[in-house]
């Protein structure tokens, strides 16, 4: 099988929500000497971007996006360990988290998926994350960007607290911070000192690439 055919299989498996095919294609890529970075960027990411575009156009919906993401992550589990460390040094490092007091993480997980599909190395800090703990994890991971999410009104204050701790520790100047979730707004982002309010996951990666990283 040619390299192009393997790339197509990876992409098609993600678009078609085929978990076993995604894993098999990832293994085949490694077995036939395809660069794991190429397999990720040309195969998996291409597929996930197709899904993202179709989701934005409302031709596929959340169930398909989530299952496609599961396929992508399953293949990444096989490919990422094979990537030489030096080939990841230029990739942007991002973190996604749901702030303290909130456990609704579906939005955060979609953001994580689209950041991954955008070529970022993403750390999932989880949900209900204490501000001090979140900032410590960000420092340890050396992230360039933190994406904060909440579904609920009361926990918007946890976003503010997280930004406060980021400023207190001095890490704020080293990273971009975006926020998202139904109760948030661009005004709220400005009020708490975040850089951007993401309308959705595509908006998040689009803004980071266009306005921050100029990719």
């Amino acid at each position: 099988m040619s390299k192009e055919e393997i790339m197509d299989r990876l992409s098609d498996a993600v678009v078609g929500c085929k978990l076993d095919l995604a894993k098999a294609a990832a293994q085949e890529a490694l077995d036939t000497g395809v660069s794991p970075i190429d397999a990720i960027n040309v195969g998996l990411v291409k597929g996930m971007n197709i899904v993202g575009e179709r989701y934005a156009a409302h031709t596929v919906y959340l169930p398909q996006v989530l299952v496609s993401a599961r396929c992508m992550y399953a293949a990444l589990d096989i490919l990422l360990p094979a990537v030489p460390k030096d080939q990841l040094k230029d990739a942007k490092r991002c973190a996604a988290a749901v702030v303290e007091g909130d456990v609704h993480d579906i939005g955060k997980n979609i953001v994580k998926t689209m950041l991954t599909a955008g070529g970022c190395i993403v750390s999932d800090f989880g949900k209900d994350v204490n501000p001090e703990k979140l900032v410590k994890m960000a420092e340890e991971a050396g992230v360039d960007c933190i994406c904060l999410s909440t579904l609920m009104t009361p926990t918007m204050d946890s976003m503010k607290k997280t930004l406060d701790v980021l400023r207190e520790t001095g890490y704020r100047s080293k990273c971009t911070v975006t926020i998202g979730g139904p109760p948030t707004s661009p005004e709220f982002a400005s009020e708490i000192g975040a850089d951007h309010r993401d309308l959705n996951a595509q908006d998040c990666i689009g803004w980071l690439k266009g306005a921050v990283w100029h990719a």
Binding site: C17, L66, V67, H104, D105, I106
Partner: peptide, 11 residues
């Protein structure tokens, strides 16, 4: 859980 439910609806 919404995420689990949505995936299970599909699969």
């Amino acid at each position: 859980g919404a995420e689990r439910l949505f995936m299970d609806m599909f699969t």
